[in-house]
Nucleic acid binder design. Structure first.
Lengths: 230, 230
DNA sequence: GGCGAATCGTCGCTTCGGCGACGATTCTTC
DNA sequence: GAAGAATCGTCGCCGAAGCGACGATTCGCC
């Protein structure tokens, strides 16, 4: 089973942010309509694989897609995206092979934009190209900022922040501690220790696959206290 | 004096790669000519400052520009770019304030592209917009890959790689160990220890502000041995 | 040639976090 | 409700690296 190793680097997905960064308007989509067609993928099948020639980019319409890069020993999950996400565009525009593999984890419907049709189309619709450009730069900036924030911060601080991020409107985080550790690129034990500290500080309560936020301000204090400020 | 703190995060510049990522053809520049004009800046003066409204992007023609982000206590140098670099474009396209400050460290000549003129122009010249898009995505990909390579690698490995990167054609690296440490986001002592190891292994020789590569293969072995392979 | 500044080489201490281990809970499924 | 799997809480050990300190070496400048 490779899921253990597979999941181990899920934190990269967090680092690089969501890839659903291309807000296309209905008109845009209409214009793009002639550049490709819808495709359906069963769970477990690939939209494209790392190293393949990039012949198309995809806009995810429904379902979850996992992006990962293969390494000799492990697969690094670099993203997990849902409806709205655009994938494969980097390689497509670079004219290079795909950088990562994209695998459907649920039944997926995606719009396939073929390079041969997309490029001329963007030339005819510069507004879409511009929007694409803006989206790409946004992501670049977000990635840089995320890296800055990630470095030189202790797991303790990262855990506090992650909880704030993931808490639902009831202040609950429904994740196992192992999952949390994966999201942070850390280990279960270290995360557990951080949680213990937070629990003793009265900021949270922990349970089986649940973390309950008790004192939101305390958590925020931990984060902002040491954040590179912004 | 703030230079010490200022320089301390020079390694970010390495992480985020060179910002000179926009290869414009002469024709492109000609077309862009109508969107702005040349400006000259004396050393120490700013092209723009973090937080200012982004009114223009700049293409550096001559001189070195330092990009940094201000924090309550320190300035993080996120890039140091020379001729060919494009700066300020992210904020410009986002329509948001500048993300970082840009300061001339030498006499700088730059071409100033004003937003009000640039945007319509790109709409008229989609090819340029496309090239810009490609360049942005390239950098995004490079940043992601760099982050992957940086994480989970020891200073020892990073030092070996940095030496290979910075060695001139005589196999010499003319940098103080303090500078090396800054480039890696590490400390002088730790770097020194790594160098000692490499010296004992017969891979390099060290001197005053000089490192001489003796056994290139040995260095490469250190790097590739542990690199996430690619 | 000499002096101060910069740089190098090295210790030792400390913190952070990865890793293995083990028992105690909680859930799931039949 | 009982067995087995998943999850949690906690130790202890160890390596990596930050930080301060101090003497030795080298350089630039007068």
């Amino acid at each position: 089973m490779d899921t253990a190793e597979h999941q181990h680097f899920a934190w990269l997905a967090r680092s690089f942010g969501r890839t659903d960064y291309l807000p296309l308007t209905p008109e845009d989509l209409e214009a793009l309509g002639e550049a490709g067609q819808y495709v359906d993928k069963y769970p477990g099948t690939h939209l494209f694989k790392e190293g393949d020639d990039s012949v198309a980019a995809y806009v995810v319409k429904a379902g979850e897609v996992e992006l990962y890069r293969s390494r000799p020993e492990v697969d690094l999950v670099v993203g997990r995206v849902g409806p709205g996400a655009v994938i494969g565009d980097i390689a497509l525009f670079q004219g290079a092979p795909y950088i990562s593999s994209a695998k459907a984890v649920e039944p997926v419907t995606a719009f396939q934009l073929e390079r041969s049709k997309l490029l001329p189309l963007l030339t005819r619709h510069p507004v879409i190209a511009m929007r694409w450009l803006v989206a790409g730069l946004n992501q670049l900036e977000a990635t840089q900022r995320h890296v800055i924030r990630l470095m030189h911060r202790t797991v303790f601080e990262q855990v506090a922040e992650l909880i704030l991020d993931e808490a639902d409107r009831f202040g609950e985080v429904r994740l196992s501690q192992t999952s949390l550790a994966n999201l942070l690129g850390s280990t279960r034990q270290t995360v557990n220790q951080a949680l213990s500290q937070l629990r003793e500080a009265g900021a949270i309560q922990t349970g089986y696959r649940v973390i309950q936020v008790v004192d939101r301000d305390a958590l925020e204090a931990v984060v902002t206290d040491t954040v590179p400020a912004r």
